[in-house]
Write a protein that binds this DNA or RNA. Structure first.
Length: 955
RNA sequence: GGGCGAGUGGCGGAAUGGCAGACGCGCUGGCUUCAGGUGCCAGUGAGGGCAACCUCGUGGGGGUUCAAGUCCCCCCUCGCCCACCA
């Protein structure tokens, strides 16, 4: 039975739509069939140039390499909503487009599956996190496949797979086995440091010959230099989570990023990575990256490089160093302020002041940052009773403590220059401290503050900051008076400080070293054991991976969130039989204790893009030739191209954490000679978010957004008024739309098309379910233009297209190619709809238009495009079919229409030959009846002709 | 307080300094239908006019230009990031 009769149709179809209309049911049928065929034919497998996935001939035939990457997801148990795959659809469209324009595209998807949520879910349900994680990964793979994403399935990785984290541990050992050579400005293997120490080329810290050091002393010297080391340093202890966390995971109000528990600064022995050694390179190499300025600025601010000077002030407790960006204002430093946590506070406090100081310190420590903010910027502090000596004036200046000076930045102490710093100015004003003028502000400054020009600072409303001549700024050997440049003042002061041993120019960073250990279960174990003296040893490669031991006791020990003095306890500590291990590390069999920390969740995401390139390699984390092929520097793109992924798409929320850590690891691996690329991500594109309305009732509780009714601009739920707000789509706001609903109603191609059409990829935009139907109608019109809805026969004709249609086709090809290349899919879609709307009006669709139209749509709606391509008589997948190329001859018409403006307003339009010269265009414009009427007899002063664009007559 | 970005119809959004509002939603009218829906066709920035057309119009105010949504200055609003960083 090949034909259906009309009568059958009306009985079998409740909606009496024609039997072969492009409906949701047909879309689903097409989509599932093609997804199966792609799998069966291994359509999206991408050849490497060599190695296990190597096929050099196919790789060459596919064309130029292109590596397209998504930020890989965390496989949560909640399932996807339509907001999640926005970026994935974008990269898929781009990858498919690039395959059709002669590129060998690496495109894969992995899962960032270690971390707290899986563990917390496991604790709640009693299910082992491995089980729930595997289930979630499987679910997510299925959901992503249903969208038709063209990933190479062989290259998918999960960070929790021992075959993957074996290499995460191996990289850790590389970092552990490296030190930073500040002269060569790169990391080097620790063996080279030992060789230099042994030969005497590099002196030991205390100058004694290497041979005279005991074995223990040697280990201390070496361990002190490692890029990954166990340090006893102030860390962020979060009792509520039962683990320490990195600075980057602590919010501005001193709470944990996850869980929102209080975080306390405590000294503890923890793993630390020396990311600060790379601070300059992490800033400087941003210039070589094709990233948005917004993200680059965030990274620069986070690293927070500022140049200035360390100045040493004499005091009864010895020299106190302060950091300042304005050493030139030293003559105006009339007091000094220490942070309440500063180690010298006790030594600098007189007995008379000790009660007041102790009370203030206690209050400062208890006060949470959030309370400090509540109090606004009102400065508080107490004097210690002692004084320091200002090195340029020789004057005794009082030492205060105040909580506006932070222990975590600079040296935790400042020189206070009240006339040149607003905070110091406020503090001095409050406590009646001296405010000598050291610069003569310009008249404009006084005018702006509406006061007369005076050096009486008591009448200034604010401190002065900027270039202005110095006054009161000289001693016997340094004279800044009259100089009106801050840069020059800084230079002269720094010279003087260094010459007189009172200080030196220096650079300070906000970036701290990276706290790398966590007292949790669901993470990568450290490949480290300790001997009886507590010294760490990296396990040799052949003992990797150190598998996460199976246990039912994976709950972390958490504490009362406010119990600052609790101590972390790793779940792995409880596994005595795993912790104690007998090994031969080249020194005979001995007992060791394993490290019981796990790595932070960021570890696995620091290098996953590298593993995509060579996922099955069990000899190396990546074959150097494979890495060089996919990620090597592209000097053809720009001379200082650092290499890396060609396009990385993800949300802006990873601006500092993941993107900084991954760059750091990549640079270490580059320094150690394992990589050809200096950076992991050459180009970064931040996609927007899908937003949706969310509604709260009177109790401020979110209510299901789909039960809300709108009446006259107000919103109601069960008849009661609710308030509308705006947020990211998600379960917590109760406004998530599932992709399954969209497949059911329209199919995956419509969903893909809608997400790409709703706006530019980098902009956030609101989800509107009712708008989706527009793209569905477009696909129906497309289908109808090629397939008879009653008979399912192809209705494309072989007669040539008329001239107008052909020209429109080629203009569309020209634009769509450019727009897709620039990731502007929304405008590409608009052009394709225009073309289709034109084709719809023709009596029949010419093949010469139908085929390129299908090919142009293939990246966006791959299933329906494959189906139409197949029905048009092609056996091969569209995936590697060449994308249409516009014929330049058809981009220009024989005639061109010019709007004619009179004084900037359009008054008429003329049509002239495309090769009419300026004079001819002008003559035609001035002859146009409407233009003549608008000019109304006046003599044109000037006629501007913009060739191909327009004419403007000025009268 | 600092940095970055954005303000265009009822809505999402288009516009290398050169015809503002492409494309889609919604809305209005029509065709199809017993009907509803679906589908199709046409119209749709505001105001005026029977009409051809005219006037106004891209957050507000100034400026540059033959020409400004676009460039410059000031202001307002919103979003994001950082925030007593010495």
């Amino acid at each position: 039975m090949s034909e259906q009769s009309p009568s059958e149709t009306s009985h079998t179809n409740a909606t009496d739509a024609p039997p072969h209309r492009y409906t949701a049911a047909l879309a689903q049928e097409i989509e599932l069939a093609w997804q199966e065929r792609w799998d069966a034919e291994r359509t999206f497998e991408t050849p490497n140039p060599t190695g296990l996935l190597g096929d050099p001939e196919l790789a060459a035939a596919r064309g130029e390499k292109l590596f397209v990457l998504d930020m890989f997801p965390y496989p949560s148990g909640a399932g996807l909503h339509v907001g999640h795959p926005l970026g994935f659809i974008g990269t898929d469209v781009y990858s498919r487009f690039k395959r059709m324009t002669g590129h060998n595209v690496l495109y894969s998807m992995g899962f960032d599956a270690f971390g707290l949520p899986a563990e917390q879910f496991a604790v709640q349900t009693g299910q082992h996190p491995k089980i729930t994680t595997d289930q979630n990964v499987a679910t997510m793979r299925r959901q992503l496949r249903r969208l038709g994403l063209s990933h190479d399935p062989r290259r998918s990785v999960a960070t929790t797979d021992p075959g993957y984290y074996r290499w995460t541990q191996w990289i850790f050992n590389q970092i552990f086995g490296a030190w930073y050579d500040t002269e060569l400005d790169r990391a080097r293997p620790i063996a080279e440091l030992i060789a230099e120490l042994e030969s005497g080329a590099r002196p030991t810290p205390d100058g004694r010959p290497w041979a005279e050091l005991t074995e223990g002393e040697r280990r201390d010297v070496i361990d002190d230099r490692r890029l990954a080391f166990v340090g006893d340093a102030p860390v962020n202890w979060c009792p509520g989570l039962g683990t320490v966390v990195a600075n980057e995971e602590v919010t501005a109000d001193g709470r944990s990023d996850r869980g929102n528990f209080p975080v306390f600064k405590r000294n503890m022995r923890q793993w630390v990575m020396r990311i600060t050694s790379y601070a300059d390179r992490l800033i400087d190499d941003l210039d070589t990256l094709d990233w948005t300025d917004a993200i680059k600025t965030m990274q620069r601010n986070w690293i927070g490089r500022s140049s200035g000077a360390l100045v040493h002030f004499g005091s009864p407790a010895g020299p106190i160093s302060v950091f300042t960006t304005r050493p030139d204002t030293l003559f105006g430093a009339t007091f000094m302020v220490l942070s309440p946590e500063h180690p010298l506070v006790d030594a600098l406090t007189t007995p008379e002041q000790s009660l007041a100081v102790a009370a203030y310190r206690r209050a400062a420590i208890i006060k949470k940052d959030i309370e400090r903010q509540d109090e606004g910027r009102e400065k508080t502090g107490v004097p210690t009773g002692m004084s320091a000596v200002n090195p340029v004036t020789g004057a005794d200046i009082p030492i205060w403590i105040a909580d506006y000076v932070l222990m975590g930045y600079g040296t935790g102490a400042i020189m206070a220059v009240p006339s040149g710093d607003q905070r110091d100015f406020e503090f001095a004003g409050k406590y009646g401290l001296e405010i000598p003028a050291i610069q003569q502000p310009p008249a404009t400054w006084f005018a702006a503050h509406d006061i007369e020009s005076t050096l009486d600072t008591a009448r200034w409303p604010v401190a002065f900051v900027g270039d202005a001549p110095y006054v009161n700024s000289s001693n016997e050997s340094l004279d800044l008076n009259g100089i009106d440049s801050v840069a020059e003042g800084v230079r002269l002061t720094n010279e003087w400080l260094e010459a007189n041993g009172h200080g030196e120019a220096t650079i300070t960073y906000k970036l701290r070293d990276w706290l790398f250990s966590r007292q949790r279960y669901w993470g990568e174990p450290f490949p480290i054991v300790y001997d009886d003296d507590g010294r760490p040893y990296a396990l040799p490669d052949e003992m990797l991976p150190v598998e996460l031991p199976d246990t039912t006791s994976f709950s972390p020990r958490t504490f009362d969130p406010d119990d600052e003095f609790s101590d972390p306890e790793s779940p792995l500590d409880r596994l005595e039989s795993w912790v104690n291990v007998e090994l031969d590390l080249g020194d005979g069999r001995k007992w060791y204790r394993r490290d019981t920390n796990v790595m932070p969740q960021w570890a696995g995401s620091c290098w996953y893009e590298l593993r995509y390139t060579d996922p099955t390699n069990d000899q190396a984390f990546v074959d150097p030739a494979v890495e060089a092929y996919w990620m090597g520097p592209r000097t053809d793109v720009r001379p200082d191209h650092p290499g890396g992924v060609d396009l990385y798409v993800g949300g802006v929320e990873h601006a500092v954490l993941h993107l900084l850590y991954a760059r750091f690891w990549h640079k270490v691996l580059y320094d150690l000679g394992h990589l050809s690329s200096k950076e992991p991500y050459a180009r970064l594109f931040n996609q927007g978010y899908i937003l949706a309305d969310a509604y709260k009732d009177e109790r401020e509780i979110y209510i299901d957004a789909f039960d809300v009714e709108e009446r006259d601009g107000a919103y109601y739920h069960d008849g009661r008024p609710v308030t509308r707000e705006w947020g990211k789509m998600g379960k917590s706001l109760k406004n998530a739309v599932s992709p399954d609903e969209m497949y059911e109603a329209y199919g995956a191609d419509t969903l893909r098309l809608y997400e790409m059409a709703m706006g530019p990829l980098d902009a956030s935009r609101p989800w509107e379910t009712r708008d989706v139907v527009g793209m569905y109608r477009f696909l129906q019109r497309l289908w109808r233009a090629m397939v008879d809805e009653t008979t399912s026969e192809i209705v494309v004709v072989d007669e040539p297209a008329d001239d107008e249609t052909r020209r429109l086709l080629h203009r569309t090809i020209d634009t769509v190619r450019r727009e897709m290349d620039a990731l502007r899919f929304n405008t590409a879609i608009a052009k394709l709809i225009e073309l289709n709307n034109h084709v719809t009006k023709l009596d029949a669709t010419p093949r010469e238009v139908a085929e390129p139209m299908v090919l142009m749509l293939a990246p966006l709606v791959p299933h329906v495009a494959e189906e139409l391509w197949h029905r048009l008589g092609h056996d091969e997948t569209v995936t590697y079919t060449e994308f249409p190329v516009a014929d330049p001859a058809l981009l220009l018409d024989d005639t061109v229409e010019y709007p004619v403006q009179v004084n900037g307003k359009v008054r008429g339009r003329i049509t002239v030959s495309v090769d009419a010269d300026r004079a001819a265009v002008e003559a035609a414009a001035l002859a146009d009846a409407k233009v003549v009427a608008a000019i109304d007899g006046a003599v044109p002063k000037k006629v501007i002709v913009v060739p191909g664009k327009m004419v403007n007559v000025v009268v």
